[in-house]
Nucleic acid binder design. Structure first.
Lengths: 196, 196, 196, 196
DNA sequence: CATGAATGAGGCTTCATTCAT
DNA sequence: GATGAATGAAGCCTCATTCAT
């Protein structure tokens, strides 16, 4: 019948992605039904297909947007820094902060990358590899300068990344510790783990 | 088809759990259909219900068996040790080794705990809490003895657990590094991160 | 409906009918989606409705245009002939040639008349009846003159029509036989089948 | 809830095929919805899939059963005959009778072979080719014996087949002409069309 | 005239589960 | 214990059509 006046294409698409993020975060991609998604957006199920080609599109759109922002913000966070110690400090601060503030996007990446189609998986993992390599490079630079001792830069980078990422499984904004304290604790542990 | 008398029941149940582990690991719990599971076990779909009450049972049976073994093996690994340094070394060795060798069970826990029913979730998370608390206690003991400096034992324990657990996302049995080398690297990083 | 004079309307309408003929011929009326049709025409789905009222219109427009041309061309092909033998020769030549050259339109009629709405069905079948009756009249005239022996003019006409129409299921323009040879063979068989 | 007692697998499958034949004959394959089919069979839509793998299966099962019976019955109808004249008579009688009595199966073949998947299409067309070749061989034999004059056995066979097949588009069991009269008329026309 | 976003019905298929045999 | 046929809900997706812009 009468459609909501003023509803327009891009706005609807954004609503789909927002609702998709919410539902995938809560129930998982497989368990998110497009029926429920459409209901939450406030349109008919079939109307989704005026904006997407299939369910997978939603997952990919959310994840690639998240990865692109991740890389852009990392670049900004490290801009102008040269000293490996400063770089590690900045990296830890950025990573922890991002994982606290963008928890849902992060969870989507960790839990749902398995649900990506092969081609989409490759594209998302490529982003991830760039991100990881940024830290690996920092460790290599610090090791070359004698500031760090790392038996294997790749392994150490993966270890640090896993350690830092873990924050989003337990951090509670209302909890005992504030964001800055957490950043300080993680920074200390990271630097100590790398030091000679 | 027709089975020999003598009841192959327990054998069938085990086959269901094995196939379930495999399929959930590969496709995820939501995406595992009982049709496919039955086919892999070599029985009819309806026959599953001679062994289980519902799909959720399979997930819970696999996960609780895994958690029980995890705790039992951890206890064995730490038996007789008193010095916090030795305890951390043993904990790291056990955790890394376990996460490499029981990769599928570990993945099930991380990816699929969301798919547990509320009651089952509580039971599984209780196991997990015991496991985590073991490490927290070690850190507290070491801190009390002045061997470790930890700003917050719980946060540090979570950080270490996340770091160590990460191994199962990248370790490749055919890869460049052997299990023992990996254990050594992680042990070094963990101890350095904890020590004054 | 009423379109602006001087617009590109008629061109678009013709493109719709051409694309419709192609798609219905290839996939069948039921299986032709207006989405695909619009895409082939190069317009949006909704724009179709500036030219048609509904999907059925397309089928009917194509089929009635085809039937009108069929009748007009048959009339031209028989013009001036009086002798039943000549009339049969001309009819066969026309029918076979038409069914070879207008294969798609012919197929549409045979395969898709079931998909016509009841009223449209009546209108198309009326055309067809005129066509058939032309041959029936020729046979009756020839029978009255003793040139043909037909037990039942209607049955014989249907038999001949079916025989001739069959050409469009096997004739291949690149094949072993040319159009004229095929016309000759069918003419011989038809005349022999009718002769005393 | 309580299922109809006594309903068994093969009976249901046959009911599906019978209802399928009816609905495809009436509405066409594309236009037959499995919802309606299931309703006519008296089961749930999903229950269809205990018997078939997909919609296409129904079409193929019906058509291949029909073609197998067609060939078996043709073989029986021609058994023991040697004289090409007798063979043509028997062929015409069989073909016309079959097309009158098994009208629905025949229509399915003519209208719906387009809806077969490529592999299924090949299998069905192979049956058809065997059938056609039987008539071609008869014509060749008669031509070699000087009993027939056929410019091209294949074309003549196709022409005769089309002519005979046409019967099922107009024959009415309640109509003016009986089956035997129709057979006689077609036999006369066929023999006259072939003879010198 | 064309667009594009909306509708609501319906498409085929799969799902976990039940139960008489 | 196992079977296989049944259920009813739900899955994703496509359909023809409408209409404000």
């Amino acid at each position: 019948m009468a459609r909501t006046v003023g509803s327009s294409g891009p706005k609807t698409m954004q609503a789909i992605l927002d609702a998709g993020m919410e539902l995938i975060y809560t129930h998982g991609y497989e368990a998110m039904s497009l029926r429920r998604l459409a209901a939450r957006v406030g349109i008919q199920q079939g109307s989704l297909y005026n904006h997407i080609d299939n369910k997978q599109d939603i997952l990919f759109a959310i994840m690639s947007a998240h990865m692109e922002e991740l890389l852009a913000e990392l670049t900004a966070a490290l801009a102008g820094l040269e000293d490996p110690l400063d770089l590690v400090r900045a990296f830890v601060r950025f990573h922890v902060t991002h994982h606290i503030e963008r928890k849902k996007g992060v969870f989507l990446f960790y839990y749902e990358h398995r649900s990506l189609s092969p081609e989409n998986y490759e594209r998302i993992v490529a982003y991830r590899r760039v991100y990881e390599h940024t830290l690996i490079s920092i460790l290599e630079k610090g090791a070359a300068a004698g500031q760090f001792i790392v038996a294997d830069p790749q392994v150490s980078a993966y270890a640090l990344l896993a350690m830092l990422t873990g924050v989003c499984t337990w951090f509670d904004p209302q909890g005992r510790l504030g964001k800055d304290e957490v950043v300080r604790i993680y920074t200390d542990m990271a630097l100590k783990a790398l030091r000679p």
